[in-house]
Design a protein around this nucleic acid. Sequence first.
RNA 1: GGAGGCGUCGCCUAGCCCGGUCUAUGGCGCCCGCCUGCUAAGCGGGUUUGGGUCACAAGCCCAUCGAGGGUUCAAAUCCCUCCGCCUCCGCCA
Length: 438
Amino acid sequence: MIDLKLIRDEPERVRTSQRSRGEDPSIVDRVLAADERRRAAELAFGTLRNEQKELGKQIGPLQGQLKKASDDERASIQSQLDGLMTTATELSDRVKAAEDERAAADADAAALVALLSNVVETAAPIGGEDDFVVLEHVGTPRDFAAEGITVRDHVELGEMLGAIDIERGAKVSGSRFYYLTGVGALLELALVNHAIALACGNGFTPVIPPALVKPAAMEGTGFLGQAAENVYRLEQDDMYLVGTAEVPLAAYHSDEILDAESLPRRYVGYSPCFRREAGSHGKDTRGIFRVHWFDKVEMFSYCNPEDATNEHQRLLGWERQFLDSLEVPYRVIDVATGDLGSSAARKFDIEAWVPSQERYREVTSTSNCTEFQARRLRVRMRDADGVRPLATLNGTLVAITRTIVTLLENHQQADGSVRVPVALRPYLGGRETLDPIG
RNA sequence: GGAGGCGUCGCCUAGCCCGGUCUAUGGCGCCCGCCUGCUAAGCGGGUUUGGGUCACAAGCCCAUCGAGGGUUCAAAUCCCUCCGCCUCCGCCA
């Protein structure tokens, strides 16, 4: 949710942001009109309600007097009371009408504001999906031909190693499901432990959050807007399966006021992620690159809005550090305005090299949601200036399946074995290679 | 799943039966001031959040007693629904 004050004070800034996202700028003006109506309704209701309360203050004591009154006083008090009651009854109807109008105007304005996406950071590249800016390349893709190796993709490698069982995944759960088995399962645990250790070493609090949440959490994080079709919903229980730990981590402090002294608060969550992948039929159908369920270690930070841009760089830094440790070539991109989620003001993706596809593919993503998400979830901070929304940011440390893809493929050897990057060895019992099974 | 109890302004708590001086009591904590060699004690004042008006000041007004409805001139208080917590039983990892 955008700050109404910002919309009132700098409507053109919001319109510009909407345009750069390829979204409707006219919503701004509809919000302004609705807000005006809301304020008028608020004022009308407040005035009437005050009158009603003042009247009530006269009725109460008068009724008390009536009970104690002598016979000759009684008639005059009774007639006074009757007069007040007549006014009060009539006023009551007007109060109710004003209250209804206020509620309607409120709901209207709120619904319109909810349509506005976060205001983009001015430094973000403008354009659509393909207009990202490559910030940096790290590492160089191996020349497999020069090494005399015919590249195997992760499906083939996974099968040889007994690490990934896609056929049985499909048998049991359908397309885009898989089993991680043997060293595949161990690899997930190793990656998770490695990631959590890195995060804890940098002051993050490890969290294992619920993967099933109520509508308010999903709504508040902004996943029920354009992204709604990709969310699994449990109709019978009115619950949602989260697509990322960002959801329960962001909602963790909802309706709370945090002491500014305690910021930034950094959490690292490990959770399953469920995605319907509606609208991606035929895309990445082979292997485990795009699946309906995977596990992920996600960083989440609550911080002072003034510090958000720097915090974003820090999150990106930890993502890079993690990928560096996996010894995989990657590039960092600055995602264009049209490709940001509705909550994000700026987003950096890291794309790792996938040898079988001979291109870079997204493995992590970090977003600065500024105060947008916090305002929806009512997470605020208290400092010397009082109470105000804080900023929230999120970033992937490791999305298991995609990381396994890039790990197996980049470190494969001629015989189908896979070299284990040094940093991961302690988490795999010292193993230096993963070897094909019998 | 069944039975019962409970949800009050940071924490604890009064109020609810019998609706109206509730502008929600008191304690703790916290903040400001006074007093005091220092500290403690004591004294006085302040201390939910959101919105409106307005100069994004002060003041004033409205809403907020788990959430949402209802009854009423008037609801923390009466009625209904939902949510959460606790205790016991059943089931279960």
